[in-house]
């Protein structure tokens, strides 16, 4: 008797079974969206701004706007514009210019040459021979090609090396903080 009653009870109970709420709201379409950013350009822009603060230019270059030229790498240019164009280096307002080539170059405090523009480095070296311009490159032979600062990648991290002779040639003084944090100081 107990058994037959149990069976009846089970049938009733089956009707009482609770349905599990499906997880439709967490389906594949609800996945995270890639928020793609040029992280490399963001970090480089922060480096460049710090370089500007930790290098000294001759007095003759301290009474105008502080001009940073970017050759190649439009994302770096955009980052510099959006983040640092309203900042000062000392008392000098920062001005950022995007350069399309090396033919007509204004008088620059800083010139960044992107990795895909490395072929113009020799002509830059010739043009900038007497200029008080901090040339920043991102090529393994950047220092050899006349850059004072060169981005290198070590263990996936963006670091920099200093070409001390090139700094002297352009009458630039590299601060001790910058030297101490450099991956390498090349004489």
């Amino acid at each position: 008797m107990i058994l037959s009653l149990s069976c009846k009870i089970i049938n009733v109970k089956r009707r009482l079974l609770l349905l599990l709420i499906p997880l439709f709201c967490f389906s594949a379409v609800d996945g995270p969206q890639l928020d793609e950013k040029n992280t490399n350009a963001i970090i480089k822009s922060s480096y460049v701004y710090n370089f500007c603060k930790l290098v000294s230019w001759p007095d003759s270059r301290k009474d105008s706007n502080f001009i940073i030229g970017v050759l190649g790498d439009p994302d770096l240019y955009k980052q510099l514009i959006s983040k640092y164009s309203s900042k000062l280096i000392g008392n000098q307002p920062i001005e950022i210019v995007q350069l399309l080539g090396t033919e007509q170059m204004p008088e620059l405090h800083v010139l960044f040459v992107s990795r895909n523009m490395v072929n113009v480095m020799p002509s830059i070296q010739t043009k900038m021979v007497k200029a008080h311009t901090l040339v920043i490159s991102e090529h393994p032979d950047g220092i050899k090609h006349g850059a004072t600062l060169n981005f290198v990648v070590i263990d996936n991290q963006l670091k920099f090396e200093i070409g001390e002779t090139n700094a002297v040639n352009h009458d630039l003084t590299i601060g001790s903080t910058l030297k101490s944090l450099a991956n390498k100081v090349i004489k």
Binding site: D35, K37, T39, I42, I43, S46, N50, L178
Partner: peptide
């Protein structure tokens, strides 16, 4: 990417 984007503008080199 969010962390990189939010590195403070005035972050010094050590922080960077």
């Amino acid at each position: 990417a969010y962390r990189i984007e939010n590195i403070p503008l005035e972050a010094d080199l050590t922080r960077l």
